[in-house]
Design a protein around this nucleic acid. Structure first.
Lengths: 161, 161
DNA sequence: GCCAGCATACTCGGATAGATTATGTCCGAGTTAGTTTGG
DNA sequence: CCAAACTAACTCGGACATAATCTATCCGAGTATGCTGGC
């Protein structure tokens, strides 16, 4: 049960995008250069964010990615779901059906108490993620590290590769 | 981020083991036959549970697996950790170190606010899992399906392959 | 009849292949900016 | 001088290899059982 490392990249990239001049797009190459990541693979993750409606993409010169909506309306769960997909980590294969007294028309994902308990735990996880937005993180970072916004803009301006 | 299906098998097997006569060991083959699972692969999962101290194993004739301690002292988190390993789903690779202002001696797993937020969500998940024991599930199942304990014993007695 | 020794069958345990998913890379379709050319 | 069309470079987007992990299988080490033979 390992989460794709693309989640970490996507979250940092979204956060960085909150600090660029409004309306300016940033290319996948520059976002990747920020942390020394493989550009083509980060591009793949950003595509997933664009498909999920979190980012908007523009082709051609002066193209790139930008946030598709306000950071207040982007939760951590949105980003995780965009990268990892919507299916749950614990998938109930309904093995009870093959046990004694297993019926055919029963949905064991809701009947099996093991499935229910695992689902409840996963729901708690999702609720925690849904309660925090990119804007929350942005505010927390700016409180703890006031120079970060300017440093981010500078790096994007200088590393113009 | 998909969890191994061995977790589902392990949880059901632990629950079934609470219903066998006390002191009697059940072989991996019979536990597998219960749901039509591949015996050798289930054996592998049960080995992991034994290494984690959840089950105790006995070789030779009349050998097999049994619970190593009372069901009240086995949490869902214990089982999940035994199968999936102790590492977290979201692993912070500390990519901030390669960004602007990245220091060498800093532990970004505790400094990076993204890592902290993801860790908090995962903690909520773990707390939910740690709060439920195999004994809880056993009691809930017996309340909702009173015939299950006897049906389980019967199946173990009959399917003597 | 009783006990010690032994052969036997059975179980776990780890080492070994195959399948699926995640990771990483590459090139083409589309688009915008800048340039050029004609009026 | 201005405008329109064209060229060219740049970007995303998805198709294509590679690596890691999960899934599945097999055979050997060890052990308790039941039998055999002797006392």
């Amino acid at each position: 049960m390992r989460m794709s490392e693309g989640v970490e990249w996507a979250l940092h990239s979204c956060l960085n995008l909150t600090w660029v001049e409004s309306g300016e797009a940033v290319t996948a190459t520059r976002l990747a250069a920020f942390y020394g990541l493989p550009a083509a693979y980060l591009n793949k993750q950003l595509q997933a964010l664009a498909r999920a409606g979190i980012l908007s993409s523009t082709s051609g010169p002066k193209g790139g990615f930008r946030l598709a909506r306000e950071p207040e309306r982007i939760t951590l769960l949105d980003v995780v779901t965009a990268i990892e997909g919507p299916e749950e980590a614990f998938r109930c294969d309904e093995i009870l059906r093959r046990g004694p007294g297993g019926k055919e028309g029963v949905d064991y994902r809701t009947t099996c108490l093991i499935s229910r308990a695992m689902g409840a735990a996963e729901l708690a996880w999702r609720q925690e993620l849904a309660a925090r937005t990119i804007a929350d993180l942005k505010a927390d970072v700016e409180r703890g590290f006031p120079h970060t916004p300017q440093a981010t803009r500078n790096r994007f301006a200088n590393a113009r590769s």
